[in-house]
Each structure stands twice: as C-alpha cells, then as structure tokens.
C-alpha cells in the first residue's frame, strides 16, 4: 500500500531521526511512504488574522500536490506541519469566500476544496494498521521502559484539528503499550514547550520547557516521547542548558515516536540516527538491553 507523505523541511535536515525511522518502520509494516512531489514549506504556523490569505497559499499548494496524485490522504509526522496543513485544509473546505479567493489567486493550480484528508502518523497507525497488528509485529518489546507521552500544543489544539480530543492521551498511550513500553502519565503532556519563543523570548520558553521536564521526571518517567522537532529542540537539545542554569534538577532523555517504533520493530538502529539524540538517550536504551549500536561519528 502506497501513501502520500509530507515530510516537511526540518525532517529532511535536523530531524532525520524522525523521518528515516518513520519511512523504515512503515516499510516494515507493509506501507510505502511516497514523498510528495514538489512539496514546499507548510508555513510552520497557521495565520490567525481574518484577512491574511497569502500565508494559506503554501500549505494549500501542498494539498493540491496530493490531489494531483489522485490520492485522498496525506500522512504527516511533524506536529507543526500536521497542524498548519490540517488547518489550511479546513479553511478551504469550510469557508467558501476564502476558498474562492485563494483558488483564483492560484489560477495555475487546479481548484481545491479540502478534498484531501491530512492524517497524523499516530492516527494512521491506529486506523490503518491497528494496535493489535502492530503488537504482533514487535520484535523487540520495549519492556520496562517508562515513557511519558508528550503531545505539546499542535497535536491537540485547536479542537477541530486535534488528533484526539484535547486532554485525552490515548493515542500515544496505546502506541507505547503496543510497543511493550509503559506509558507514564504526567500533567504536562499538552503544555506548550515554549515553541518558537525560544528565539523571541528565550527565558519564557526555557521556563515552559523546564516545567514539562520536571513534571515528567516527578511522575517517574525515564524518557519523553514526542513527534515535533521544535518540541525536541526545546526539551531535548536545549536540556543541557536548562540543567546548567539549574532550571531542572535531573536530565531526562527524549525520543521521537518513530525511533521507539523502529527499535521495537527490530530495524537496523541506523535508521534512527541516534547520533542526533543526546547520548543519555542511547545509554538508556542500551541499559534496557535493546540492540542499539551507537557511533557518534556515524553522521
């Protein structure tokens, strides 16, 4: 089965560990992720002003690429891509006046009216593969790994594009349980990681990230799992700085959902690009006895 896949810019560079692990895992599950031809930036954030249509053009073009392929579904992974594509899609489906303006502006493209469904990786796993089948495919059960499922903002908000209703965290919980891991619930699963404010207001963003890490640690999680490269940056890559600044008392490894999936499916750890993770992340997996070969210089 072939599925249209929108990776987005960050997955092709700084978050290869999210992308490659996804493509390889899906292949192992019998799904070929076919990268969308001529995809462009999703816009990263949705424009919230009523009169701003120009910023909807980029995500709508991506959706048109899917329609051109004759497909009715596009799979995304990065939470920000998912959010901006899904919201642009709803706008094109539900707002007749704006739809006409945008279609007229992009006269060289075929008309679009929200025919494509934007699907997040987790929902695809649940609906198209199913947790039972996934569980059957697991070669290396992640037994004994206590993971806090972290959603952040864009997977659950606003309500009309939520991958599951805000405040419920069953998708990631069931995903983790299918892999054999233990989901550790903590009260900061949908708190904002500080997002792009790491550039505009770094102190505020760092405090937001520290709160999340503290709660996860207090709840007894050994690691955090997420699906957004910006969350990973604020909570993972910048974690050392948070520790040095004494904003957090203990470090906690972070993983992308697809990395844990690939490991559980028994795939070659190279597809996980662990060289892009913190070394503590790999040490944790090694300490659990999972077959992880890690060479920091492999990148």
């Amino acid at each position: 089965m072939k599925v249209s896949y929108y990776p987005g810019c960050t997955l092709k560079t700084k978050a290869k560990n999210l992308d490659d692990a996804a493509v390889a895992s899906m292949a192992a599950l019998g799904i070929e992720l076919e990268e969308l031809p001529r995809w462009n930036c999703c816009g990263a954030v949705h424009s919230l002003a009523d009169d701003d249509l120009i910023h909807q053009v980029a995500p709508v073009r991506d959706l048109i690429r899917v329609k051109e392929q004759g497909r009715d579904k596009v799979l995304t992974l990065c939470s920000m891509c998912y959010n901006s594509l899904a919201r642009a899609n709803l706008l094109m489906r539900d707002d007749e006046e704006k739809r006409e303006t945008i279609n007229l502006f992009m006269d060289e493209e075929m008309d679009y009216a929200g025919e494509v469904e934007v699907v997040h990786f987790l929902n695809f796993l649940k609906d198209e593969i199913g947790w039972d089948k996934l569980r059957d495919q697991v070669k290396v059960p992640l037994n004994g790994l206590k993971v806090a499922p972290y959603y952040g903002c864009t997977l659950q908000r606003p309500r009309d594009v939520a991958i599951e209703p805000p405040g419920r965290f069953e998708l990631m919980t069931q995903f983790l349980e299918a892999l054999g891991a233990t989901a550790v619930h903590f009260p900061a699963a949908d708190l904002c990681c500080g997002s792009y404010q790491i550039l505009g207001n770094p102190d505020a963003a760092k405090d937001a990230a520290a709160t999340i890490l503290e709660w996860a640690e207090k709840a007894g999680a050994e690691a955090l799992v997420l699906s957004c490269p910006l969350c990973e940056f604020n909570l993972g890559k910048k974690q050392g700085a948070l520790f040095e600044e004494e904003k957090i008392m203990k470090m906690i490894p972070t993983f992308y959902i697809t990395q844990l999936l690939a490991i559980a499916l028994g795939l070659n750890p190279q597809v996980c690009h662990f060289e892009l993770n913190d070394q503590a992340s790999v040490l944790l997996l090694k300490s659990k006895g999972y077959p992880i070969e890690f060479e920091r210089d492999a990148a």
Binding site: G43, A44, V45, M80, Y196, Q197, F233
Partner: peptide, 13 residues
C-alpha cells in the same frame, strides 16, 4: 535551530 522555529518566529514576530 530547527527551520520550523525560524519560520514560525519570523512569521509571528
């Protein structure tokens, strides 16, 4: 920084 951080902050700020 991941590109999404740059694009998002320039878009908003």
């Amino acid at each position: 920084c991941p590109q999404i951080a740059l694009v998002a902050s320039f878009r908003k700020l």
